[in-house]
Structures are given as C-alpha cells and as structure tokens.
C-alpha cells in the first residue's frame, strides 16, 4: 500500500523517458568563443530539411534558410523533420511554440541544434518563453506550416526579393516611449529590425 506512489511515479518517469527518446528534439550544445562567428555544427541525427538558423534578439526573431533567405516568420514544410541552429548574441531566449508543445532555450555563447517535425498545417505563435527584458512579451512571431508545394514556392519566390526591415514591434514601442519623454525604468535599446526578404505579418490570425 505504501508502495503505490513509488510505483506510480516510477511508471510515469519510465514512460516519459521513452517519450523523450522518441522525440529526440535536442541535438548538441557547442560552446564557442564569443569573438568568433557561431560555428557550423553538424547534426548527427537524420533530418529532411535544414538547418535553419534561428536568431533571437532583444527583441525580434530572424530565420535564415539554407539557401540564404532571411525571414521574419518561420515557414516550415509539413511532415518533414527540420533541423535548426539556435543562436543568440545577447541574453537567454527560448524557442517556444505552444502548439507544438516544444520549447528550447537559446543560450548566448553556445550553438544548440534542434530538430522537430510539424504534423499539422496552420499558423502558430512562436513565443519567447525565457524572460529577456523590457519588451519580452513582444518577442513573438508566427510559424507557418504548409504543404511541400507551397513551401517550395515560397522558398523560390522569396529568394528573389530585396531585403528590407522585418518585424520589430519592440522597436516601435520603444520609439513611442522615447516620444513620450522616455519615462519608465531603464532598459537596453532594442536591436534594430533584421533585414529580411519576407517581412511577415505581425497580427496574422493564428490557430494556436
């Protein structure tokens, strides 16, 4: 009778260990010298697409595709295991897509490789989940999961576009704050908007 909780929790833990090995999202974490560029770390496990560089800043997101596209939103092909390199230069952020039930912190000074397979079409929110300062709650963007055809079309069309300023709601709010006399407590200045070929849509209706 006294053993019931023990058995119960061990059963949960064993099952969860299994799930962990099935998902295997986290690849490797490689520290690098801050003076240098983030090194290219090859993912050992198999994947179908990628790696996409995910760069998180105080406070915007930028995604760089293998063919050189820079984008403010994350487009993913459905049912393909996609590999990412998670990078940040300032503080810790977190790559959190609630609809995917997945989250991984992004640590300055390290490159973290990460893989996942989206299985449903739609538009989902990507939210920074590790507190990152003043405009932390604005550090969000969209993840768009689409069929392979549409995805490929997006890739081929976007690569031809000219880069321009991408999503940067924090920058806008900060400008407003400056205009109102810079009241409030201290904050670092927001990073400038990334230069991207696909600027995305800030309040795109989302499914989750």
């Amino acid at each position: 009778m006294d053993n019931i909780p023990l058995i119960l929790v061990l059963a949960i833990a064993s099952y969860a260990t299994n799930v962990n090995y099935k998902l295997e999202n986290l690849g490797s974490k490689t520290k690098y010298n801050y003076d240098q560029e983030a090194p290219f770390v090859k993912e050992k496990k198999a994947f179908d697409f990628g790696p996409i560089d995910v760069i998180s800043r105080q406070w915007n997101w930028e995604f760089i595709y293998p063919n050189g596209i820079h984008s403010s939103e994350l487009h993913l092909p459905i049912n393909k295991r996609t590999n990412f390199r998670l990078i940040t230069d300032d503080v810790i952020h977190s790559f959190y897509i609630p609809a995917f039930r997945l989250k991984q912190d992004i640590i300055p000074g390290s490159v973290i490789t990460y893989s996942l397979t989206p299985t449903r079409n739609g538009v989902f929110r990507l939210r920074d989940a590790m507190f990152s300062g003043a405009y932390f709650s604005q550090n969000q963007t969209n993840v768009i999961v689409e069929s392979e055809d549409i995805f490929n079309k997006w890739i081929n069309e976007t690569v031809k576009k000219e880069p321009q300023n991408g999503l940067n709601p924090a920058g806008r709010l900060y400008d407003k704050r400056l205009k109102n006399g810079n009241r409030g407590w201290a904050t670092v200045e927001p990073a400038p908007a990334p230069k991207v070929q696909d600027v995305g849509l800030e309040d795109r209706p989302h499914d989750g």
């Binding site: 949960i12 833990a13 962990n20 974490k29 810790i92 977190s94 991984q104 912190d105 640590i107 973290i112």
Partner: peptide, 28 residues
C-alpha cells in the same frame, strides 16, 4: 529545456519523482 543533455534530464526526472514518495508518506 536549457540545453541539458538527455541523460541528465532523465536522471533528474527520476530523482524528482522520488521526492514525491516521502511527501506522499506524509500526506497519507
């Protein structure tokens, strides 16, 4: 989710689960 390797996560999941046992003893 800070980049902790898999083995460590699993290990600490088990220890955390174990702490539920003495706590459970008290509740019972």
């Amino acid at each position: 989710y800070t980049g902790t390797p898999m083995w460590m996560r699993n290990l600490f999941m088990f220890t955390t689960m174990l702490i539920a046992v003495p706590t459970g003893v008290k509740v019972f």
